[in-house]
Amino acid sequence: MCAFQDMLDERFHQLVLNALHLSEIEAGFWIEAEEQELSEEGVVIGHVVNFRADTPPAILKRASGRNEGYMVNLGIIDCVEDYQ
C-alpha cells in the first residue's frame, strides 16, 4: 500500500475514534465491526459502527451520530479534507 493511503487510513481511524469519543483501547474492546454504508448506486453515504451487546450505556452515549441500539451511524467521514 502507498504511504498516502496509509496516512489516509490512519487519519480515518483517528476520525472514527474522535467521533465516538473513545480511546484506542476502548474501541478495540467494545467495537465489533466498522463498515461503510453504501447507497444502491455504491456511493458512500455513511459509516456504521457496531458495538458489542454488553457495551455499557455510558460508552454508547459518548458516540456522536445516530444511535440505534448497539449501532452508531457516524455519517460520512471525510479524511482527505485536511490534506487538500
Rank of each mutant, 00 (worst) to 15 (best):
E40M: 11
C79W: 08
L38N: 11
A63Q: 04
C79Q: 09
A53L: 11
S64Q: 14
Q14M: 08
G28D: 08
F29C: 00
G65I: 05
L17Q: 07
I59Y: 07
E32V: 09
V43C: 05
S64T: 12
L15I: 04
D54Q: 10
G28V: 00
Q14K: 10
L74R: 02
G46T: 09
V44D: 02
G75T: 05
Q36A: 13
D78G: 05
L20P: 07
F4D: 11
W30C: 00
L74M: 08
G42P: 02
E68A: 10
D9A: 12
F51N: 03
E32Q: 15
I31S: 01
V49G: 01
E35G: 12
G42L: 02
I25D: 11
E32G: 08
E81Q: 12
V43D: 15
A19L: 02
Y70I: 02
P56T: 06
C79H: 13
A3E: 11
A33V: 03
E40I: 12
N18A: 13
Q36P: 02
L74I: 04
A63M: 07
R11K: 14
A19Q: 10
S39M: 03
A63P: 06
F12D: 06
N50E: 13
I45G: 03
L8T: 08
P57T: 05
H47C: 03
N18V: 01
A19E: 13
F29S: 07
R66S: 11
L15K: 14
G42M: 06
V16M: 11
E34Y: 03
H21P: 00
R62D: 08
E10W: 01
F51R: 03
L74S: 02
N67Y: 08
L74H: 06
R11H: 11
V72A: 09
E41S: 14
L20H: 05
F4K: 15
M71A: 14
S23G: 10
V49C: 05
H13I: 03
I59K: 03
E26F: 01
E26V: 03
W30K: 02
G65Q: 10
L15F: 04
N67Q: 14
R11I: 05
R11T: 15
G28C: 01
A33F: 00
R62H: 07
I25K: 13
I25A: 12
M71H: 12
I76W: 11
Q36F: 12
V80K: 13
V44N: 09
L22D: 01
G28F: 03
I45R: 09
G69T: 09
G69R: 09
E40F: 10
M71K: 15
Q5K: 15
F51W: 04
N50P: 00
A19I: 00
Q84H: 12
V48T: 11
S39P: 07
L38G: 09
L22N: 02
A33L: 09
P56N: 06
L8K: 14
F51V: 02
Q5Y: 10
G42W: 04
C2N: 13
